[in-house]
């Protein structure tokens, strides 16, 4: 019985794929054309301002107009490559600060980009400001790119400053422990820092919104890492994936896994974290609560997922 349904599903799916293949291809081609068209017109508008230096960035060097011009590339990956399915966008506040806390996976932090696109295009169309590790600000081009696109260092003071400025801030408490974990450990959350993110949210009186992302782990299945080379390059790890050193630069292309992102209901730090002597304990409790919510969310999404690549 079970076998039959599996065969049936496979058969019907391949049949459907065959039928819709030509149309899908033209659709994707037109999507690429659309992307280039919108980017070209956007860039033409920007060019005039840029050459004269007539634009403004915020206190962190974030340039919203520029970010929206390059966003179609991420949107294309979002819609057609990883086919991201989003739920719970109603949990993201329309205004005011909030701290989005997510699991972190994949060798490259594409999950941050996808969460940003999800909130901007399907949520309350606000820009999400992710907190990143310091090595990124030490890396040429990357440091320039991430700052322009609105990211800042995961420094407690920066986090507080952004949250008090009523921004949506995205943080990955696992940090590189999350992105650099081997494939066999996928979807197992690492230690959630030292609860610094809860402290920052409580200090700024903003809610925490746990986010669980499924699909990011399969973009680069990390089998191991090259020793010593990371120190030389100034990066936290140099990954070995089934394709990465083998196919050369082509190995950098992430696998097209099917993604789902779930935004969980907000956790109010104001009521849960007291200001008295039990503050440290409260912060650890909330950290565990957030971690548990995300782990449960991941479990649920993985149960719902039948295929890594087709969802």
């Amino acid at each position: 019985m079970a076998e039959q349904t599996v065969i049936g599903r496979k058969a019907s799916q391949s049949g459907a794929a065959r039928r819709t293949a030509p149309r899908k291809r033209t659709e994707e081609r037109s999507a690429i054309f659309d992307m280039f068209r919108s980017m070209r017109s956007g860039l033409a508008d920007l060019h005039e301002q840029r050459i004269r230096g007539e634009y403004t960035t915020d206190d962190f060097g974030f340039d919203p107009a520029w970010t929206e011009t390059i966003l179609p590339v991420a949107k294309l990956a979002y819609d057609h490559y990883w086919r991201v399915e989003v739920s719970g966008v109603e949990n993201i506040p329309l205004e005011g600060g909030a701290l989005l806390v997510s699991n972190h996976a994949g060798v490259f932090p594409f999950d941050a980009a996808m969460i940003k696109v999800a909130v901007l295009s399907e949520g309350p169309s606000r820009h999400v400001r992710a907190l990143v590790a310091d090595w990124m600000f030490n890396t040429p081009f990357l440091s320039w790119f991430i700052r322009r696109a609105g990211q800042t260092l995961g420094h407690p003071d920066d986090t507080f400053r952004l949250l008090s400025a009523h921004q949506l801030v995205l943080v990955f408490p696992e940090g590189i422990r999350g992105t650099g974990k081997p494939f066999s450990e996928r979807y197992r959350l690492r230690r959630f820092g030292r609860g610094g993110f809860v402290e920052a949210a409580a200090r700024a009186h903003v809610p925490i919104i746990p986010v669980s992302v499924v699909g990011s782990e399969e973009t680069y299945p990390m089998l191991g890492e090259v020793p010593y080379l990371n120190k030389l390059m100034g990066v936290p790890y140099v990954p070995i994936t089934p394709t990465l050193p083998l196919l050369g630069p082509l190995g950098l292309v992430p696998l097209p896994s099917k993604w789902s992102i779930n935004f969980h209901p907000p956790i109010q730090t104001d009521t849960l974290v007291s200001t008295g002597a039990s503050r440290a304990a409260d912060i650890m409790d909330v950290t565990e609560l957030v971690r548990g919510t995300i782990q449960d969310g991941l479990r649920q999404q993985l149960m719902d997922r039948r295929s890594v690549f087709f969802g």
């Binding site: 206190d59 090595w135 990124m136 600000f137 030490n138 800042t152 260092l153 420094h155 003071d157 400053r161």
Partner: peptide, 12 residues
């Protein structure tokens, strides 16, 4: 340095 906060305060 890469570990700098966005803004330094006198108290840091």
């Amino acid at each position: 340095g890469p570990k700098n906060p966005a803004f330094w305060a006198e108290s840091m």
